[in-house]
Every structure is written in structure tokens, then in C-alpha cells.
Amino acid sequence: MSHRSVAEAENCRLVRVELADRSYDIEIGRDLLPKIGEKFTSLFPGAKAAIITDNTVAGLHLETVEASLSKAGVEYHAIELPAGEKTKSYDGLTFACDAVLDTRLERGDLVIALGGGVIGDLAGFVAGIIRRGMRFVQIPTTLLSQVDSSVGGKTGINSGHGKNLIGLFHQPSLVLADTAVLDTLPRRDFAAGYAEMAKYGLINDPDFFVWLEANWQDVFAGGSAREEAIARSCQAKADVVAADELENGQRALLNLGHTFGHALEGMAEYDAERLVHGEGVAIGMVLAHEFSVRLGLCDPAVTDRVIAHLKDVGLPTGIDEIPGQKPNAELLMDFIAQDKKVSRGNLTFILTRGLGQSYVEKSVDPVAVKDFLTEKLA
């Protein structure tokens, strides 16, 4: 990954996701929300919009988006859902689909996803299935969604069987990442997004991880390092998505920490007071490194370094830090067995041979995983 390929334009950084006739830009910069109307009319002349958001984000940013669209003469309809992971459900999907259909928007109109990962995943899924496919724009309002979930076209909802098991690939037409909106994020939510940022370094860019170790405080404070880190993260994901859009191969690397993390989220019943996605990923990345050490693949010093950095930024690094009832290995294995990365009963994990040396292992022994988790939970 090279951040030199990130372009500069109109006081924002541009990252291009190259997917032939479905290519699109990620625009990253401060105070982009007030410009959405102008951007919308230039890219989608004559189109109308349905804005899907949640009640928390609506209170912070919907008025700005509505004012910009109105000024540009764009007809729009706003649809609000409850905030939280539980909105990414069958009920949330039904409500949002019916609300969009109520607006009488046509296939050539657009859905705007204004919110974090929950809204982005849900609204993208809605756009993908309404009228067999509408265009949509991602306006991610959390760090996690700006560096991860808004890029790459993964959309969907959760099931009682596990996270993100119902969905489809549906690429956005534009991603607009306004870094100023991150100033309103609680520190816990910002840290959760940072876990995904650190992930890119731990996958295959140790130089970026070293850079984050040196610059994370400026990233949190909103200095120039914040936009640099977001742009480098988006470029990393764009490169992987362009090479493997439907996750048939190396895109699976982006799931570092997620197999364990998703199981922990399921165990916590997607209760954000107990565990949010980025925290699950942080613990999951530690578990992936520890499991790699157990298999003799990785130096324990690497795991110690990962734990130290995640602790520095205020992220949990162990299962015992999750409030509430302690999980058992069998319950976690049930969630892992439902994971999308299971193939013919074999477990696929992202393991590592060192700092920034992750790889896809498609034949992990379930017994070894269960023994490892049993030991961790003892």
C-alpha cells in the first residue's frame, strides 16, 4: 500500500476505487457536508434522494445535509431509524424498504446513507434490493465507517445466527468522508474506529503501524495526521477491493480479528454498552496474534507490541474486559461455525507471521481453536 497514490483536490483528498464502470471516489476532508447538494447535482443531475439516517446522527448532521440539498434544488425525503446495532435487522430492513417505497422514488434516484456502519450497511442493502438496485451515496459519520464499512460495497443485516449473514455486494456511487463530523464522536467510538485503522498496518503495512504508534495522539486530536491516516486506510482498502471485489481471495485479509470479534459481538447480543464492533475487532486482533503464537507462527514480542499500542489508545485487548456474563468456548465456537468465512466445514482465519505479515489460512482445525479459547477463558 502506498499513500502517495492519494490525490489532492479542492482542499480534500481523493481516493479512487477502481472497479471499471463501477469505479467511484472517496472524498476525504473537513466541512464536506455543506457541499453535498452541489456535489449531488453535478454527479446525479435531476435525481431525487432518500436520506436514511438514525435519530442520533439526525440531531447532529441532518439539518446541514437537508439545507445543502435544498439550496441545490434536490428533492429529498428523510427516513430516521433508531440508533444502534439492533437496527441492522429484519425489522430495520423492512421499515427502511417500505419508507423508501413510500417516497415513490424511481430506480434512477439515489439512497443517501448518513450515519455510521449500521446505517451504511442497512441503507446500502436497501439500495441494492429496492427496484432490483438503486444507486447510493455513503456519507459515513464515524471513524470506523470512514475507514472501513463505507468502502468496498459490503452491505447487509445481522441475524440471530450471526453478524452480517444476510446481505449483498452493492458498490456506492460516491463516498463523502467529512472529517469534521468526527469532532462530535465520543472518545470510545473514535477509538473503536481506530481499531480498523490499526488493522491495515497489521495486515501488510508495518510502516503504517509504526507511523500510527508515533502519530496516534494527533489522529485523536484532529490534527493533520487524522486525514492522513484516514486517506491511507481508505487507499489500503481500495487497493484490496479493486483486486478482489467479492472476497474470493486476498480481500479476506481485511477480516483480520473479525472472526473472533464477530463471535464476541454475538455473544454480547450486539449490546453496544457491552461491546461495539471496533472493540470486538481489537480483542479479535489480539486473539489472532496470540493464536498465531500458539501455532508457532509468530514471535510473542509482536503480540506484546500490538497489545501495548491498543491499550495506549484505550481499546480493550482481552475477553475478560467485556462487561457482563463471561462467554464459554462452546458458545463462541457456535458463532465461529456460522461465520461467512467457513468453507466445507473448515475454518478460515487470518493469521500472522509477524508485524504486518498476515495471511489467509483456510484449513484451521476447529479443535485447536476451541482448545485455545478454553484456555483463554479458564
Rank of each mutant, 00 (worst) to 15 (best):
residue 264 L to S: 02
residue 217 Q to V: 13
residue 275 L to I: 03
residue 253 L to K: 11
residue 296 G to T: 10
residue 209 F to W: 09
residue 284 G to H: 02
residue 236 A to L: 05
residue 286 V to L: 09
residue 194 Y to P: 08
residue 246 L to R: 15
residue 234 C to T: 10
residue 280 G to H: 01
residue 300 P to C: 09
residue 211 W to L: 02
residue 272 A to C: 11
residue 207 D to N: 13
residue 256 L to M: 13
residue 252 A to V: 14
residue 201 G to M: 05
residue 203 I to F: 12
residue 291 F to S: 06
residue 219 V to T: 04
residue 258 H to N: 10
residue 284 G to R: 05
residue 212 L to D: 05
residue 301 A to M: 13
residue 265 E to R: 03
residue 256 L to N: 13
residue 235 Q to V: 04
residue 273 E to D: 00
residue 203 I to P: 13
residue 207 D to Q: 13
residue 290 E to P: 11
residue 268 A to V: 01
residue 284 G to C: 00
residue 252 A to I: 13
residue 262 H to P: 04
residue 274 R to T: 00
residue 208 F to N: 09
residue 281 V to C: 10
residue 240 V to Y: 09
residue 230 I to W: 10
residue 213 E to D: 02
residue 284 G to D: 04
residue 293 V to C: 14
residue 210 V to I: 08
residue 301 A to L: 10
residue 201 G to L: 03
residue 242 A to K: 03
residue 221 A to G: 09
residue 194 Y to V: 11
residue 280 G to K: 11
residue 290 E to H: 12
residue 206 P to Y: 00
residue 289 H to P: 07
residue 271 D to G: 06
residue 276 V to I: 02
residue 245 E to Y: 05
residue 298 C to H: 12
residue 253 L to D: 13
residue 291 F to V: 10
residue 194 Y to G: 06
residue 221 A to L: 09
residue 258 H to A: 04
residue 211 W to M: 03
residue 296 G to Q: 03
residue 199 K to P: 08
residue 210 V to A: 01
residue 209 F to P: 00
residue 298 C to T: 14
residue 202 L to N: 06
residue 199 K to T: 11
residue 281 V to N: 07
residue 294 R to K: 15
residue 298 C to Q: 15
residue 225 A to K: 01
residue 203 I to C: 13
residue 234 C to D: 11
residue 258 H to I: 06
residue 235 Q to A: 04
residue 222 G to L: 07
residue 204 N to G: 15
residue 281 V to R: 07
residue 236 A to H: 15
residue 285 M to L: 00
residue 295 L to N: 12
residue 217 Q to G: 10
residue 226 R to C: 11
residue 228 E to W: 04
residue 223 G to V: 08
residue 196 E to C: 03
residue 246 L to T: 14
residue 223 G to F: 12
residue 228 E to D: 08
residue 195 A to Q: 04
residue 216 W to C: 08
residue 284 G to A: 08
residue 218 D to R: 01
residue 213 E to V: 03
residue 195 A to K: 06
residue 239 D to A: 02
residue 196 E to Q: 00
residue 302 V to S: 07
residue 211 W to A: 02
residue 272 A to H: 09
residue 273 E to W: 02
residue 227 E to R: 05
residue 269 E to K: 07
residue 251 R to E: 09
residue 256 L to A: 14
residue 206 P to H: 05
residue 281 V to F: 11
residue 228 E to V: 03
residue 221 A to N: 08
residue 199 K to E: 14
residue 304 D to E: 15
residue 248 N to V: 11
residue 196 E to G: 03
residue 255 N to Q: 15
residue 270 Y to A: 03
residue 223 G to L: 06
residue 279 E to I: 00
residue 266 G to F: 03
residue 290 E to N: 15
residue 288 A to S: 15
residue 258 H to L: 07
residue 225 A to D: 00
residue 294 R to N: 14
residue 252 A to T: 12
residue 245 E to N: 06
residue 217 Q to R: 14
residue 196 E to F: 00
